[in-house]
Nucleic acid binder design. Structure first.
Lengths: 161, 161
DNA sequence: AGCAACTTGACCGAATCGGTGGGGAATCCG
DNA sequence: CGGATTCCCCACCGATTCGGTCAAGTTGCT
């Protein structure tokens, strides 16, 4: 049940972009510096996100990456789907997955996995990039030295829902 | 977000044992035959489950494996925890996991992952082995040619909850 | 033109995964 | 007792994935 570092890094990178949304492109190097990641590796991830339509790139001097949509309109589910490939816990609940025995009946645990998949997707759908930027106001720059107490509320709310 | 085949196989094996609970030990070979798995591989998994206290083994001729507890008292969460090692989606929400920056603050996505972890654990806790045996009556042998319509109800209920 | 920045794709070491093999050790049955 | 049966343990293996690097090449701003 691991989210690979691709997913984690991708989320972190997009949160940075979300925090600067509307203020021009941000370079890979800058994101890598802020989040302390390998710039080369980040490049790969942003490439996937670009072909997936979540970010747009601006080439040339003073170029960089920009969110393709408002942070409020990008869910964590979308991001992870692009970077992780699939969020299905087992192959047989994925697209075109089969787990039937010879008679074509599904495996005994099929309902279990399907429910788990749905639960996970539902949870990840309830988070958008805007929910993850450290400060509440989307216009203000991130200067927060305080651990953002609103975050805990978010968790419990999402967990309950 | 994958459950490895260890977890899947383990669940399937234990469901077999659950279906025969109270009727003596079942050999690895028999489970492997019924579920069409590699017997040698299954041995390893059952070894883990044994040291984890979920099954007991009986050596010698006519030996095999038996559930250590009633199927109703074994949750899917326990099983997967033993076979998968940890169900934390990312390292930093695991036991002794750290993701703080230099200042010791948690990473921006921490609440996200923590909530996901809690959601998954809660879901997996709501399933026991007894919920997964194909027929409703625990005494009858599995002869069901019908796809068990109760399964769908289970899913939707679990998904909603 | 010249440089900054993205693009593409090969490559790499390590870890994990799914699975096999073989040699015990315990236990039952005759 | 003696052999058959069954679990137990540990080493090993090929393939894949993961995280990450390197080395070109291309595009576009200034």
């Amino acid at each position: 049940m691991r989210i690979s570092s691709r997913g984690q890094y991708g989320i972190r990178a997009l949160v940075v972009l979300a925090g600067r949304h509307g203020r021009g492109p941000t370079q890979v190097r800058e994101i890598a510096r802020v989040e302390d990641l390998s710039a080369k590796y980040l490049e790969q991830l942003l490439g996937r996100l670009r072909t997936g339509g979540l970010v747009r790139s601006v080439r040339g001097a003073r170029g960089g990456y920009v969110l393709a949509r408002d942070p409020v309109a990008i869910t964590v589910r979308e991001v992870l789907l692009l970077l992780e490939g699939s969020l299905a816990p087992v192959g047989c609940v994925d697209e075109g997955g089969t787990c039937g025995d010879a008679a074509g009946n599904a495996c005994v645990a099929h309902p279990l996995w399907r429910g788990l998949h749905a639960t996970v997707l539902g949870y990840l759908d309830s988070f958008t990039l805007a929910d993850l930027v450290p400060v509440a106001a989307p216009v203000e720059a991130a200067r927060a030295a305080v651990p953002a107490p609103a975050a805990d509320e978010l968790v419990t709310a999402a967990t309950r829902g």
